[in-house]
Design a protein around this nucleic acid. Sequence first.
DNA 1: ACCCTATCGTTGCAAATGCAACGAAGTCAA
DNA 2: TTGACTTCGTTGCATTTGCAACGATAGGGT
Lengths: 144, 144
Amino acid sequence: MSDFDLDAFLPYQLSVLAAQVSHGFAALYKQRFGITLPEWRVVAHLSHAGPVSVREIHQRVAMDKSKVSRAASRLEAAGYVSKRVNEGDRRLVELELTEKGHAMINELAPIAREYEASVLATLGDHSPCFRAALETLLKEKADD
Amino acid sequence: MSDFDLDAFLPYQLSVLAAQVSHGFAALYKQRFGITLPEWRVVAHLSHAGPVSVREIHQRVAMDKSKVSRAASRLEAAGYVSKRVNEGDRRLVELELTEKGHAMINELAPIAREYEASVLATLGDHSPCFRAALETLLKEKADD
DNA sequence: ACCCTATCGTTGCAAATGCAACGAAGTCAA
DNA sequence: TTGACTTCGTTGCATTTGCAACGATAGGGT
């Protein structure tokens, strides 16, 4: 009779919440631009950084190399991203947002912030504490 | 120049943390018993509830019907779970832990609690606030 | 009894995923 | 230069996933 309470188990709670929150936002950009979650991540990162290699995104954004590579290819085909061989090191591919890509992120960024705010609204005063804890946990696990 | 900061975006942070935490624990039960995450969830839920249908697990545990069904089949093949047609309503399948299944959850439960504690240890005093916020967010989104 | 409809669990199938292996390109020392 | 070793991005492949059927069963109204 161990009677394990899955509902109160942290990894389970985090998985469920993360899935709900991510899918909730994914519905917005999927409907508007037809991109997937991996593609969203690549675009979002590219908007922050300049021209960047697949490898850099791979380690900064917690996605498999192949996932990044395929997302980048789809984004290129859709005209949101340009791929170009780095002339200094020809193994590297420089990814960069096109004008169309910038237009997309410009439209999506406020939607993202609004969505985030709507999720946090439930927490009220406890929101800062929650976010601080999140940062702490993420920072500690950043050893890979 | 929208310059969207993905690292500070809540859905992204939650996804990354949830993946890290879940995989960290998954490594433990995978190595010890060779079960997958969906299978772990089914077993954990069965340990808490009595004999239960696939449907009940499906809605209580945030997994697709087919995912539950396939996990249950694998668990049955491995001898951890028994499947039986409900005599009152022959559409339903009653899932129940076997003795072997109980033995597994009995061994896993303390490991799970220990793992959870090790994750939360980083937070110190802020842990209660974090967990309360988590519960709040999960409860609010429970309308499906 | 007979439909009509809803629900349950399984299965088919296309798409996504993780992982390993590959070729291309770079590095460094002999 | 050659050769051994590393790193980068892509691709092949087996597995997993989500979604939409499907057959079987149940319930309700006529």
